[in-house]
Computed example of a mutant assay.
Amino acid sequence: MDYGEGNKIITLCTENAGKVGVLVRGAKKVKSRHAALTQLFTVGEYVFFRNGTGLGTLNSGEINQSHHLLREELFKAAYASYACELLDRVLHDEETGNFWFQQLHACLQALEEDKDPAIIIHLYEMKILQAAGYGPELYSCISCGRELADESFFISPMLGGILCRSCKHLDPPAMSITPRSLKLLRLFTQLDLRRLGQIDVKDETKKELKSIMRAFMDMQLGLNLKSRSFLDQMEKYEM
């Protein structure tokens, strides 16, 4: 965000200091030596001074990865912005650290490497839900506890997991889910973004996953994210 005539305040997700707000003096000036360090999605080493837990002030820095391709391609920028805003809005300063630095880094890297952005983001959303304490129950009925095998599945974003047919009445709007999508959601709960390879998912399955994950994010977190609204507009344009 802009601050004053020539300054910026940036938010850093760091490996060892949590989530930190840092003032970068002169960042908006044409000849600023720090301007590049304030670009979105930049990975680098930042040296800043902070008195207590307040706003820090940048002293110097060095870029490791600029991720300029994410800023240059509109669709990639939309997905990457959503990943960053989601992390910023859901997790508090003290909850971020090495794990979330690595997950965000892996998410941006995967987007830049042209891996399926929808799958990357749904996996990332699942990690966010789990970190916030809203990870869904996907192996047994959320109500009666019965393990579900060869039968019709329903998933309830409101109740936080899958329902058997006998318990479906507890949430009439519960959504049906195909075995393929359920298998992928279970994989998302266990998979680290750093281990994500190429996953080939059919369009109808991706459509189902998007509907389910959107319902979970809305029901459990209830966030109004500008980046998601923009992403929705971009996806409509892409179609």
Score class of each variant (00 low, 15 high):
145 G>R: 04
167 C>E: 00
177 I>H: 10
179 P>S: 12
153 F>E: 01
173 P>D: 01
163 L>A: 05
152 S>E: 12
179 P>I: 12
179 P>K: 12
179 P>N: 11
178 T>E: 05
163 L>N: 05
156 S>V: 07
172 P>Y: 11
172 P>A: 11
154 F>Y: 15
180 R>W: 02
148 L>F: 10
144 C>N: 05
174 A>H: 02
168 K>C: 10
176 S>T: 15
152 S>F: 08
145 G>L: 09
167 C>T: 00
145 G>Y: 06
170 L>G: 01
173 P>H: 00
147 E>T: 11
151 E>W: 00
142 I>P: 00
152 S>W: 06
143 S>C: 14
143 S>A: 15
150 D>F: 10
143 S>D: 09
137 E>G: 07
165 R>N: 14
142 I>G: 02
156 S>Y: 07
164 C>H: 03
153 F>G: 03
167 C>F: 02
157 P>W: 04
163 L>H: 06
175 M>T: 07
169 H>V: 13
177 I>P: 05
144 C>F: 03
180 R>L: 14
140 S>K: 13
155 I>D: 02
143 S>N: 13
152 S>L: 14
163 L>R: 04
159 L>A: 04
162 I>Y: 01
141 C>A: 09
151 E>V: 03
159 L>F: 07
139 Y>F: 06
138 L>F: 08
167 C>L: 06
144 C>A: 06
164 C>A: 02
140 S>W: 09
173 P>R: 01
174 A>R: 02
140 S>N: 11
171 D>C: 09
173 P>E: 03
172 P>I: 12
165 R>I: 13
153 F>P: 06
156 S>E: 06
148 L>D: 00
152 S>K: 13
171 D>K: 00
171 D>W: 02
172 P>F: 10
151 E>R: 10
176 S>R: 14
168 K>Q: 14
143 S>G: 05
168 K>F: 12
168 K>T: 05
160 G>L: 00
176 S>H: 10
157 P>Y: 08
170 L>D: 00
170 L>P: 04
156 S>C: 04
155 I>P: 01
150 D>V: 09
144 C>M: 11
177 I>M: 13
151 E>D: 09
169 H>I: 14
167 C>S: 01
154 F>P: 08
171 D>F: 00
164 C>Y: 02
138 L>H: 12
161 G>S: 14
157 P>F: 01
161 G>I: 14
163 L>P: 12
153 F>M: 08
145 G>P: 08
180 R>V: 14
166 S>G: 06
181 S>M: 06
149 A>F: 10
144 C>R: 03
177 I>V: 15
140 S>Q: 11
161 G>F: 09
179 P>C: 15
138 L>E: 13
178 T>H: 07
155 I>H: 02
141 C>K: 02
158 M>C: 03
153 F>H: 11
153 F>R: 03
168 K>D: 00
154 F>Q: 01
140 S>H: 13
170 L>V: 04
137 E>V: 13
146 R>C: 12
180 R>K: 13
153 F>Y: 13
164 C>K: 00
162 I>G: 00
148 L>P: 09
